[in-house]
Design a protein around this nucleic acid. Sequence first.
DNA 1: ACGTAACCATACCGGTCGGTATACTCGCAG
DNA 2: CTGCGAGTATACCGACCGGTATGGTTACGT
Lengths: 181, 181
Amino acid sequence: MPDPLDPGPPLTAAGERLAVAASELFYRHGIRAVGVDLVAEHAGTTKKTLYDRFGSKDALVALYLRRRARTWQAFLAERTRGDGSVLAVFDALDAWLVTQDRGCAFVNAYAEIGGTDHPGVAVVRAEKEWMRELFAGLAGDAGLGAQLHLLFEGATVMVTAGGQPDAVVRAREAARALLGV
Amino acid sequence: MPDPLDPGPPLTAAGERLAVAASELFYRHGIRAVGVDLVAEHAGTTKKTLYDRFGSKDALVALYLRRRARTWQAFLAERTRGDGSVLAVFDALDAWLVTQDRGCAFVNAYAEIGGTDHPGVAVVRAEKEWMRELFAGLAGDAGLGAQLHLLFEGATVMVTAGGQPDAVVRAREAARALLGV
DNA sequence: ACGTAACCATACCGGTCGGTATACTCGCAG
DNA sequence: CTGCGAGTATACCGACCGGTATGGTTACGT
């Protein structure tokens, strides 16, 4: 089966502008709150081009999530370069959330499309699976990795929905305790 | 200031039916996905009555969240009666999520209304604050309580958006480790 | 008997939704 | 020269959005 996180081949010029506009708008305001007209307008193009390139709003939403996953993974790789430790992942999250004030795009998207057959659901699942396996690999233990991942997800939620900026620091402390270091 | 989680005085008969219908529909399908016409229809009443009772959709959404908080707190109190331990809270969450397959209503709502001046935002914040203080009280330590709360929130996310039913069990294991029991 | 709160029924408002249709221009490869 | 993919521009579709207006029917307390 194909990788649900693969962002696919390069886009045309207007297609790329549409994807960028969709990412910004969907993340900031939510999926249902943003209409295709608004996306096309922000991209400086038309609804016709949007449907020529992507076929449907659902497909554009799925692409938004795939590109979002790639962006986060690239940020994480750069921030943890030369420091493949669990704690470095929490430091990366702290830095990430400074500029991403609407929290986890995948959790937010799932709040709107969960329980449906929307093509974005598989992307959300795949991204969470990817993170859990990342922690399992770093911890060298699947069970411990899953526990560390829960701290990671909980911290993301509490920084945004909970309005508690120190949640990542608390998560890092708990991770240290679980790791016994 | 008034308690953001106070569900207010009892409602009239049709008002109560509207609140019940709103809870079910908003939780299952999301806030923007459900129109006021649909809520009124499910309640067996009319849009006119909805606006006579609540004044706006936003106010109805805020009430939905306040009632949801009360329902969860009542469930938790009943499940942990006679066992005021941290681990009992995780057991209660496990039982709760069996019937609540769309995850945390407050996280989901924040995904749609976060970053706005929607009256529901304060309710979301208050509910998360309430849970964090519950854990702080049970653990007898604010810092440790915050850490346990992160496991709680992370588990809720991973059971639903992550599709991992054993996340609560993992969270409970991690909580035991953090508590040193 | 009277006022009033609650409720039902229906119609309407301007605006936006996702999606389609028509018609055109441009650059490029065969 | 021709065909085609890409893009622009505009108009349109039925459906639905949150919210308002009008009018009438119960039931109850004073």
